[in-house]
Amino acid sequence: MRTDIFARLDREPEPPKIEIPRMSRHRIALFGGTLAFYLAIVFAVLVSSWLVALDWKVMLFRPYQQWPELHAFLDYYVVLGQRGPTAVMVACWLGWRSWRQHTLRPLLTLGTSLLLLNVTVGAVKIGLGRLGPHYATQIGSAEMFAGGDIFPSGHTANAVVTWGILAYLATTPRARRYLSALSATVSLGVGLTTVYIGTHWLSDVLLGWAAGLLIMLGLPWFEPVITRAEAWIFAVREQWRARRRPAPVLPVAVGGPQPVLLAQSLVIEGAGDTEETGPPLGAAGHAAVSTRPRAHTVRSERTPVTPAGSRRPPHADRAPRAGTANTTPARPLGGS
């Protein structure tokens, strides 16, 4: 049993059962109500209604001058709504959860929500082009289509999505309730802080809350895409691992026969039990040669080998040399 401190960092043997939120009737009703609120805010600003007048009253009140002692703290607090720092912090936590639970769903869900946030909020910002309080040109004007990019509030929408994703991915109802309350408090504080500093109108904050809530309520529609993306990433990872895995090597004893020659010798040994007429062929198409050690024989037991003779052609008119075995004259054969 391991007793070191790194034993606590081991991954969980089995990931917990994570309940994926679905688009229930209650969620669809909330989505529809939030969408109606979103469109109502946009319409009220476009027609310069009482909401625009309220924006100007809050702006001329200058909260940062009424409570200057809060300015130093709120300058740091508003960072909780900036996309870069908050995305990095939440991604680190969700990356740890992904590694522990053997799944990529937390990181893919965060990426999907941030992508939706950039597309939807960014498109409305550029399309409406509203100027901020510090750049306003006419008192009482909505300052629309003037080349600005502050409607809706990106800080507020980002706070709703970034911190709300923690509640969305919670594994227990209790954790989901606590994290929902925490994300609502942080996003509400970030939105009001932008109004206090004077970087956003009050209507910008209201629309930012609605924009972030719409993304959080509509995330279950993208769960099938997240599931397919996770399966594809895992399949690509397995293919990459298979290509990098080295080929198995058979162990060979030092000085022993090679595996191919040993197989060929086994083929030759079994050739006596078959009726094949030709020698067995090896892997390269040549006759297999046995490497079995043969018994050593003495010279007297060896079969005499007849020399092949001289390569010169014999001449009929050449007499045999003297002193050889053929110099003895042949005896005539007698009759009786």
Rank of each mutant, 00 (worst) to 15 (best):
S310M: 08
R22L: 02
D273N: 10
W50E: 12
S310H: 05
G84L: 07
Y77T: 04
P85K: 08
L207S: 14
D149C: 12
T86S: 05
G218E: 09
A330V: 06
T327K: 04
P224M: 00
G84K: 06
R83E: 06
W56T: 09
W93L: 08
A142E: 15
T34N: 05
V260Y: 04
H155S: 02
L60T: 10
G127M: 04
W209H: 09
D317T: 11
D4P: 01
M1H: 14
E230Q: 13
L192T: 10
Y38L: 07
I139N: 08
P220W: 03
F31Q: 15
Y38C: 10
V121P: 03
R243L: 11
T112M: 07
E14V: 13
V79S: 10
A72G: 09
L115W: 00
P13H: 01
W221K: 03
E12C: 08
I197W: 12
G81A: 02
R243I: 04
P293Y: 05
A316I: 08
E19K: 07
W50F: 14
G32K: 13
W93M: 15
R292S: 12
V195W: 11
P332R: 07
P313D: 11
D75L: 04
R311L: 13
V121F: 01
G191W: 15
A36E: 11
F31T: 14
G270K: 13
W56Q: 13
R27E: 03
S113D: 01
L214F: 02
A253S: 00
P224Q: 05
F43K: 06
G111D: 07
L60E: 14
P279L: 03
A325T: 06
G335P: 07
L80K: 14
R294I: 11
L80C: 08
T120Y: 02
A36F: 07
P16M: 00
K57S: 13
G127Y: 04
T199M: 12
M144Q: 15
L250M: 01
L179D: 09
G278C: 03
W221S: 12
W93P: 09
M144L: 15
R311E: 14
L107V: 10
D10K: 12
K57P: 12
F222T: 10
T199K: 06
V119W: 09
V249A: 00
G309F: 08
L30H: 15
Y38W: 05
T327L: 08
E276R: 00
R294W: 05
R228E: 08
D10P: 11
E275K: 07
V225R: 15
Y38E: 13
P152R: 03
P152H: 04
F151E: 10
D149M: 10
A146S: 13
S203D: 07
G309Q: 11
I197A: 14
A142W: 02
P15Y: 00
A211N: 12
L262T: 03
P152A: 12
A316D: 04
V88T: 09
I18F: 00
K125P: 02
N118K: 00
A319H: 00
P68T: 08
T162C: 05
M1T: 09
G164F: 01
N326C: 12
Y64Q: 15
V298P: 15
L219T: 10
F31A: 15
T274K: 10
D149W: 09
S180M: 07
R97D: 01
L117S: 05
I197N: 13
P279I: 02
R22E: 04
E269A: 06
L250F: 01
T162Q: 14
P279Y: 12
A53K: 14
V161I: 11
N118S: 01
Q65G: 03
A271K: 08
G132D: 06
I41C: 11
